[in-house]
Design a protein around this nucleic acid. Structure first.
Lengths: 226, 226
DNA sequence: AATGAGTGTTAACTAGTGTTAACCGATTGG
DNA sequence: CCAATCGGTTAACACTAGTTAACACTCATT
């Protein structure tokens, strides 16, 4: 099991020490900073996978740091630790782009749970991005399909969405009407024929790897086999 | 002093009327809708600067509308009006991307204060803007686009605004009609073609970093991919 | 007032995308 | 084994978007 890089910002030495140590016993690699400026610097150098920021800190408060970080990276999860439990702070935290907040005092278990939840969420988002299918790599947001190390081929929007759904349901049946409603908005005759055309196009584009097949289940839908 | 465009969604006629009128005496231009669908439609055409959404509404509830709006614009401030004061709702509101909430009954003064706070904050966020996009740095107020350390290139007003909106919505769809209403004021044929020309110009100017792409989603809009 | 540079719109032509049509093969049930 | 239906494939078509250039307008300078 590999470690997870976490950046912790907490100015109170006793508390910081406790958090750092508890997290380290749970397989986190903790970089602990005690003020806002050091935290921001560490973020740029370290590229941690998740951040835990105290709101009240010397030099730069947690909100300010979070704002600067969000300008560079809008996906890394941020948890705020806040002494004041006022909703005003919560509101500000979320509006800056924080993903969760925890009011002091809190239990370590609580923190761990929040961390894992956020990591899980960002992992899901990331893996949803670049998909592996046989010898092909499919970058959904970029609509790029590449075979081995060859130059990527651009897919159209429709092709990309259809392929995405096929891959997400690989080795299981993808129901015709489900996908038609999802991508075309209806499941009438013409949309169905249009979809057939796209299946045909995808088959052609995936033909370099012969282990990949889009097979038809008559009357029900398609199945992408790897 | 110029007016501020505000979109209000409140199904209860008496309350809606009161809110609308009090805000109008305070220099707001209030567009008042009484159900979720009308609200969403009005948002696309009007591009208001701030939204006040009742949570319980016919056709589409406030949370659903907010979700749809966030898919198009992730910065316009949203205030929820909620009858239930449970924190569960509050958290849901925030996780959807709401910026503040107000539980009924509330005083007009309270609402006004919240509105001004949010406008203030979104104003601050906006003017602070030097944006990073791949290897490029884009200074929006100065309309300067620079590649790595090279000398900055000046963008025109239109180019800058379009790029700004693309970057603010990077990696997500930027709806044609939304951006046309926002920058051109209409979404007729000619404005649309004009916009295409600017997209073409921006593509050329962003071509030094090949990881950046402005991809088209036929019939819907553009997506800036980093 | 005349010139010219800069900006945005319109036009003209080209390229790309998705739908529809046409034709054919495959599968299924009687 | 045949008819009916479903799906496969290709091409034609309609429409949307990409690109380039011409045009119109504004504004500053002469």
């Amino acid at each position: 099991m590999s470690t997870i890089k976490l950046l912790l910002a907490e100015d109170e030495p006793a508390l910081g020490q406790i958090i750092k140590e508890s997290l380290e016993t749970r397989n986190f690699e903790v970089n602990w900073k005690q003020d806002g400026e050091a935290t921001f610097k560490a973020f740029k150098e370290d590229t941690p996978e998740i951040l835990v920021l105290d709101v009240m800190m010397p030099k730069k408060d947690g909100f300010t740091v979070a704002k600067e970080i969000r300008a560079l990276d809008d996906s890394v999860p941020i948890i705020f630790l806040t002494a004041k439990s006022q909703t005003k702070d919560v509101v500000e935290g979320f509006s800056i782009g924080g993903n969760d907040y925890l009011k002091k005092p809190f239990s370590m278990e609580e923190l761990i749970v929040r961390i894992h939840n956020l990591l899980q969420r960002s992992k899901l988002q990331k893996t949803a991005d670049v998909l592996q299918i046989g010898e092909y790599t499919f970058n959904f947001p970029k609509q790029e399909l590449s075979y081995k190390e060859e130059a990527p081929e651009m897919l159209t929007h429709r092709e990309a969405h259809l392929l995405f759904n096929l891959i997400k349901n690989k080795n299981q049946l993808l129901d015709r009407s489900v996908i038609l409603n999802k991508l075309w908005g209806t499941d009438d005759f013409f949309s169905a024929r249009s979809m057939d055309v796209f299946i045909s196009k995808l088959r052609k584009k995936l033909s370099k790897d012969s282990t990949i097949q889009i097979i038809n289940v008559r009357g029900f839908g398609y199945k992408l086999i790897v």
